[in-house]
Design a protein around this nucleic acid. Structure first.
Ligand code: SF4
Ligand code: SF4
Lengths: 152, 152
DNA sequence: TCGAATTCCGACCGGTATTGTCTTATTTTA
DNA sequence: TAAAATAAGACAATACCGGTCGGAATTCGA
């Protein structure tokens, strides 16, 4: 049905929150309570983002999470993939998950191309854009914004 | 994880098959066996497509399914939505499935915008394009191909 | 130095959606 | 009339996902 996972949703919420907060760290509990998200789950999501180097964490009292770099340099594609793994529109998009019809399938390539399109759509939307709820600033032709990796 | 459902996959395979076959009808069994898809399941998928007027069916011996219109006038978005219902990237995309964080969520609008982008990506890829495995013909700017409904 | 706050990690469970199977009825043609 | 096909719905198996729990390590402040 082509949905984001709830965790990805939470991740984006947190990322936006942290982007708006600037350099001040925020704890998992704080974010969770602010948006009505189960604390443990939010923590796990943040951990995942930290391990993928989208966030930096600081343990101990008064610890918390901060963005690892400017929100202009992170796309929602980065966040999604950090949480849910690589975007795979079809089962055959990844090597390890082989589908029964692989041999006879006639839509593999076109569908793979569609996946690419979706990925660029996700890749050209930065966290900064998310934070300042701006509908993408004119989008100069030929310019790829932020960290979108065509080889990913 | 942003995946198509298996049924949607099957539907696209069938649509392409029927597009290539032109005006000659094909039975569910025939398609199913050719691609190694469970017959009953394929049948159900085709029925769904028929009810959504993407296919026309003919009962009885030597019956089967044909495309209801030119493959140039059908997009993969049409097929996906016929099978899996409206594309909802987030739980809040539809009225009936209200999410817990709706009140406090800070990424509703940006995410809705992303959904739109994905939808156009899906809408601008026709079944004809799928059939002739062509990587979209230059894509003249400002032109929307086929049946893409911005209000859907 | 001690204790509280916090990140970190993995394992587990229950509900829900998806996939696939089965059965039966109906329609059409040979 | 018999065979082939659509049509429709019930049902089981299973995969996935959201959420929970428990425990360990780390840092800071009193
Ligand atoms: S091989 Fe074909 S049927 Fe299997 S996952 Fe890929 S696109 Fe879908
Ligand atoms: S309201 Fe926010 S958290 Fe809930 S589904 Fe929509 S985007 Fe996701």
């Amino acid at each position: 049905m082509l949905r984001f996972s709830k965790k990805a949703d939470y991740a984006l919420i947190a990322m936006k929150h942290l982007a708006l907060r600037g350099d001040q760290a925020a704890s998992a509990r704080e974010i969770a309570e602010q948006y009505g998200i189960p604390v443990e789950l939010m923590a796990k999501v943040l951990q995942r983002l930290a391990r993928r180097d989208l966030l930096v964490s600081h343990q101990g009292t008064r610890g918390g999470y901060k963005l690892s770099r400017s929100p202009r340099l992170m796309s929602v594609a980065d966040v999604i993939q950090a949480i849910d793994g690589p975007v795979t529109v079809t089962a055959c998009s990844t090597q390890d998950d082989q589908c029964e019809q692989y041999a006879t399938c006639n839509v593999r390539d076109p569908l793979w191309r569609i996946k690419e399109r979706i990925l660029t759509a996700l890749g050209t939307c930065t966290i900064a854009e998310l934070a300042s709820d701006a509908p993408e600033p004119v989008h100069p032709p030929g310019t790829q914004s932020a960290t979108w990796h065509p080889s990913a």
